[in-house]
Amino acid sequence: MLKLENCRILNGGYAVEANLEIRTGSCTAVIGPSGAGKSTLVEAIAGFLPLTRGEIRWQGADMAGQPPGKRPVAMLFQDGNLFPHLSAAQNVGLGLRASLRLSDADWQKVEAALTRVGLSGMGARKPAALSGGQQSRVALARVLVQGRDILLLDEPFAALGPALKAEMLDLVAELARESGATVLMVSHEPADARRIADQVVLVAEGRAHPPQPTTELLDNPPPALKAYLG
């Protein structure tokens, strides 16, 4: 269980409050108007923004004070998820060891992860030699080898076309099912939520609301969501 207890997150000029629980192994979409604080919420869970109040607990343990790299969290950002000067395999390898001092067994894990996301034999390529979809797959392969309990997606596929984006979301859902990871995904597209999320957290007017089943919420939106959906 991921528990945000009475949290208040300050990001520059505005604050977001959250008091909610996310079930282990669930896939949750975080939806709301732009500027409402969707990214602020996931950044606080990832440890990039401090809490001014409250606690974030994973399986009962408070995460406060843990630096981002020590939390049970893997995160994909809107852009810049790969280092352009490192090969695909090295980019994945960073998920195992940030020093990149990898054993043969480690490299085999990297190759297996690349194979799992459909990039068998492409490990030596630099990101510039890969398509946008393939770059996303490399980032997902890294998430795979990281083996963290929680996966946070801050709209990493926003730049992809609709078909490719759907393909990536399906791959995320598949990988999460296999590993049992808990997924939180920021999105401004209700269609994304319907595609893979079983529940939705609505962030609006400085508040992150407790999750509700996706179809139920989107079919009968409350006023704040209705204003956003139009």
Partner: peptide, 10 residues
């Protein structure tokens, strides 16, 4: 790359 590196504990 700051946040990505931090999230990788690099």
């Amino acid at each position: 790359y700051g946040r990505l590196s931090l999230s990788l504990d690099m």
